[in-house]
């Protein structure tokens, strides 16, 4: 069994299953009246559709970078993306599309001149390849953290809001204490203790992120708890668990989905900041944060090495912007009362 979790099959199955589940949910949701109306509104919103397209494109690259097989010779796992960018490493920096290296006293010719569309970085890696590698990290950070934080926040928020009294006190005290530690400090502390790594970072981000959603869930549950339909259900002898799962939870879903979507961009931004502070994902994992962090001294060089920073920053900016725009459109479409304008 342990072997299975290490195997290529497992590593390939997970991203495919996640993608399939996502598509399934999106297709099924369309049949629900509330969501059908939201779909129609988003369908009319060209900017939102463009943003969604951009997100899907990034997601596709992340998927390409998740499926692969272990090379029997070197015993390293190589993904489809790795295979596409199968090139020899250059010696050092080279400008986009250049034929000679940069930053050496005497420039030397490149091994693959003119093929590095975005140039190469200090250790001679193709910058385009490094940038695309960042997609997977970004999606894992956003997705896995949401998967950790959302169920936690939902459970505690529902319980606190529904049962009140002691439960509510305990949950409120917990998140008040947690939110009293400024999130960036808590993140640093958690990652120092847990160690650096993708999973640890998601866990740490999850611990700092569930508070906001929990507060929201608790408030919404409080509102629904005293509504007539819940009272009626209670009077009919429906069990608490069933009321929570069947009556209250479905009413919270739109708010939760909007908040998770809008939170996604914040998570992606956090990764870059954590990398800069020296508590990000390890250097061996390709991420935009690592690229930006590595590039901070490159602007001081002569000639200026700008392409590393620009590529990573642009890739990050476009994805975050797409999530911000799509999240706003989703909010407007699902709940017109929450409209920002």
């Amino acid at each position: 069994m342990g072997r299975f979790f290490q195997s290529d099959l497992f590593y390939n199955l997970v991203p495919l299953l996640v993608t399939a589940a996502l598509i399934f949910v999106v297709v099924r949701a369309r049949r629900q009246p509330l969501w059908a109306e939201a779909y129609r509104r988003i369908g009319r919103n060209k900017i939102a559709l463009t943003a969604l397209g951009v997100i899907c494109l990034y997601g596709f690259v992340a998927l390409l970078d998740s499926i692969g097989s272990t090379d029997p010779k070197t015993q390293t796992r190589r993904t489809l993306l790795d295979r596409v960018f199968e090139k020899e490493k250059e010696k050092t920096y080279s400008a986009p599309g250049a034929r000679m290296t940069t930053g050496e006293p005497i420039p030397s010719p490149l091994k693959a001149p003119g093929t590095h569309l975005l140039g190469t970085d200090g250790v001679g890696d193709d910058v385009l390849y490094r940038t695309l590698k960042g997609c997977r990290t970004a999606f894992i950070i956003g997705g896995l953290t949401s998967l950790i934080a959302t169920p936690l926040a939902l459970c505690l928020g529902l319980l606190a809001g529904y049962f009140g009294r002691r439960t509510d006190d305990a949950v409120q005290y917990t998140y008040t204490v947690l939110s009293s530690v400024p999130s960036i400090l808590l993140l640093i502390a958690l990652i120092l203790v847990l160690g650096r790594g993708l999973l640890q970072i998601c866990l740490a981000l999850g611990i700092t992120r569930w508070v906001g959603l929990c507060r929201l869930t608790r408030g919404e549950t409080l509102k629904h708890r005293d509504r007539d339909y819940v009272r009626a259900a209670r009077a009919l002898g429906v069990s608490n668990a069933r009321i929570l799962a069947r009556h209250i939870l479905p009413n919270l879903l739109p708010v939760v989905i909007i908040s998770v979507t809008l939170g996604f961009s914040g998570l992606i931004l956090s990764e870059a900041i954590l990398s800069y502070l020296g508590v990000g994902v390890g250097a061996e994992i390709g991420s935009w944060g690592n690229m930006i962090d590595a590039a901070r001294d490159e602007l001081a060089r002569d000639p200026v090495i700008w392409w590393n920073l620009t590529s990573a920053a642009t890739a990050l900016f476009v994805l975050v912007l797409a999530f911000n725009i799509f999240g706003d459109a989703l909010r407007d479409a699902v709940d017109p009362r929450l409209r920002s304008s």
Binding site: S265, L299, A313, L321
Partner: peptide, 19 residues
């Protein structure tokens, strides 16, 4: 103005600092 705000808030802090 609102769109500019969304653009500005999509840039990561460290890129502001470095850039």
């Amino acid at each position: 103005g609102t769109f500019l705000c969304v653009l500005l808030m999509s840039i990561v802090f460290i890129v502001y600092v470095i850039g």
